[in-house]
């Protein structure tokens, strides 16, 4: 008997009373102003979210947010960046990128998360960049995670992530430090 069969046999042998799957219907939280809530939560988790105003230039906004960023990387059409991450051979080559600018799919108002599916050759870009900018459409914000998971889908890369704020840790005496292994700062631009 294979391991798999033995484990499944043991499970069947020991399972006694069974329970029904509940209906997941609940009146989950809604916000009167999803964009405002998203911006507030983003700030509370150590990140930032800004709305691109009408007539404002996206590249200039990014430059004003990160004026000191040296090497930038992006494959988003129309974004000025030093490197196209799709041109690198290995994920290691992205080490040293100051600013990654990536496209997100949608945001979640209740926790400031942005659903990002891999749409660059090496997904290390999302984590290895010193700072990260995620672009989403401002009408692409859902209220809560129930709506989020109804919407979240994968593409052929088979990797997706809700990113909520920058990388952080409090492992030394519970003192919050932003920028543990991943980005030291994160801005979501709503356009």
């Amino acid at each position: 008997m294979s391991n798999k069969e033995e484990i499944l046999k043991n499970i069947r042998l020991h399972t006694q009373e069974t329970y029904e799957m509940p209906l997941i219907t609940l009146d989950a939280i809604h916000y009167p102003d999803k964009v405002e809530q998203f911006i507030q939560v983003s700030k509370s988790v150590g990140g930032n979210a800004v709305v691109l105003r009408e007539g404002e230039d996206l590249n200039e906004l990014i430059r004003s947010l990160y004026p000191d960023a040296g090497k930038s990387a992006s494959n988003v059409p129309g974004i000025h960046a030093a490197i196209n991450p799709d041109d690198v051979r290995t994920s290691q080559e992205l080490n040293g990128i100051d600013l990654g600018i990536v496209q997100g799919v949608f945001g979640v108002a209740e926790n400031g998360g942005v659903w990002v599916v891999q749409n660059v050759k090496e997904r290390s870009l999302y984590f290895i960049s010193e700072y990260l900018v995620i672009l989403i459409d401002k009408d692409q914000i859902v209220d809560n995670m129930h709506e989020a998971y109804k919407k979240a889908a994968f593409n052929d890369y088979g990797f997706g992530c809700f990113i909520s704020g920058p990388s952080k840790t409090a492992d030394i005496e519970q003192a919050l430090v932003v920028g543990a292994h991943g980005p030291k700062g994160l801005t979501v631009i709503l356009r």
Binding site: I24, V41, S44, V45, V108, E110, N111, G112, G113, N144, M145, H146, A148, Y149, A152, F154, D156, Y157, G158, F159, G160, C161, F162, I163, S164, G165, P166, S167, K168, A170, G182
Partner: peptide, 26 residues
């Protein structure tokens, strides 16, 4: 999953979410 991720980080560390909720599918 949507039920559990709403509970996990809030219960664990009092955050609305962990910074990364990663899905490894392929």
């Amino acid at each position: 999953l949507s039920v559990f991720v709403r509970l996990l980080a809030r219960s664990a560390t009092g955050q609305p979410s962990t910074s990364y909720t990663s899905h490894y599918q392929k």
